[in-house]
Amino acid sequence: MAVLREVESRGAIETAKRIRQRISAVFIYGIAEGIVTSDPAEKLGAALKPLRKGRQPAITELKPLQKMIIAAEEDYARPLTRLALRLLALTAVRPNELRGAEWAEFEDLNGREPLWRIPATRMKGDLDRKEEIKGDHLVPLTPQAIAVLRALWPLSGDGRLVFPSNRHLHRPMSENAIGYLLNRAGYHGHHVPQGFRAAFSTIMNEWAERHGKDHDRKVIDLMLAHVPKEKVEGAYNRAAFMPRRRELAIIWADMLSECLPHPVILLDRPAKATASSSRRRAIAPVDEDFRFPSRRRAA
């Protein structure tokens, strides 16, 4: 308990809870091996401070948000993690929706209206949402998002997942990878991966207040996969306002990317050396004339 209280005193309540879990796991192993007879960490969770509930931290002003992205992308990380951060910022999808992205979910990548169709089964919501026939979330892709996917292709284009784990290519990247990158860049407690949704909502709603059209606020909510309270799930048209959604997506991407480096540059930045490899594999970006091969749509 003294060890956990010391961590708690720094305000790292979630970390204290995770450490308790690790300590408990050690003792459970010890019990199985006959080394000890009990787990002294088992009951400590109830004595720790509760996690603070409320809105997750997010930077919701454009210039500080750009500064944060630049700082994070300059830190040590796998190129795939940097590109995941960039695509998350551009699309404002939920982090888990990004992590589980499959190449087969992307449509018309070589055409004029590229689209990311996130299956209803992967969307946040209850069983009714996940079984809804037309419950897919449609994300119009901007030229900046396509540039990220082009940079990603040499990394994962020969597999099913866009963001595979470093160790297991059939599994998505760690749910903590982007968050750890933001923390290392100095933004712990200031911005989390989920915070890009709050940033998009705040900045774009402020823009719509000054320059937008009627119903832009509803369109922005639709882009975030929010369902209006007055609508039931089955009666909500998730494909509505697609031309305007594409226009707003481009406006957001243009504003956000104004001072950000091209995604290809992120491939050449240093990644942390691992025990199995102290040298990073050179990655050849695709050329400007590259065309994505056609793929079967995800089931």
Results as ranks from 00 to 15, higher is better:
Asp254Phe: 08
Ala47Glu: 13
Phe200Leu: 03
Ser174Gly: 10
Gln194Pro: 01
Asn96Cys: 12
Gly125Asn: 02
Arg150Phe: 03
His188Pro: 05
Met223Thr: 02
Arg184Asn: 12
Glu8Gly: 07
Ser174Val: 04
Lys67Pro: 01
Tyr29Ser: 10
Ile13Gly: 06
Leu248Trp: 05
Lys231Ile: 03
Lys49Trp: 15
Ala225Thr: 00
Glu288Ile: 10
Leu248Gly: 01
Val286Gly: 02
Thr142Pro: 07
Pro95Cys: 14
Leu152Met: 15
Thr274Ala: 09
Pro140Val: 04
Leu152Lys: 05
Asn205Phe: 02
Asn205Ile: 03
Lys53Met: 13
Leu4Gly: 05
Pro263Ala: 13
Leu109Asn: 00
Ala120Pro: 12
Gly125Ala: 08
Pro154Lys: 09
Glu61Gln: 14
Ala249Gln: 00
Asp216Pro: 02
Ala240Trp: 06
Pro164Gln: 09
Leu51Thr: 13
Leu115Arg: 02
Leu266Phe: 07
Pro243Lys: 03
Pro270Lys: 14
Val162Pro: 00
Asp128Gln: 15
Pro40Gln: 10
Gly30Arg: 02
Asp289Thr: 11
Leu109Tyr: 07
Arg117Cys: 08
Val232Ser: 15
Asn96Ile: 12
Pro228Gly: 03
Phe196His: 09
Ala72Glu: 02
Arg82Leu: 05
Pro172Leu: 06
Ala185Met: 07
Glu175Leu: 10
Lys218Glu: 15
Leu224Arg: 00
His137Lys: 05
Arg197Leu: 00
His215Trp: 15
Lys67Gly: 14
Ala198Ile: 03
Glu258Leu: 10
Val162Thr: 01
Ile118Tyr: 02
Leu62Cys: 04
Arg5Asp: 13
Pro261Glu: 05
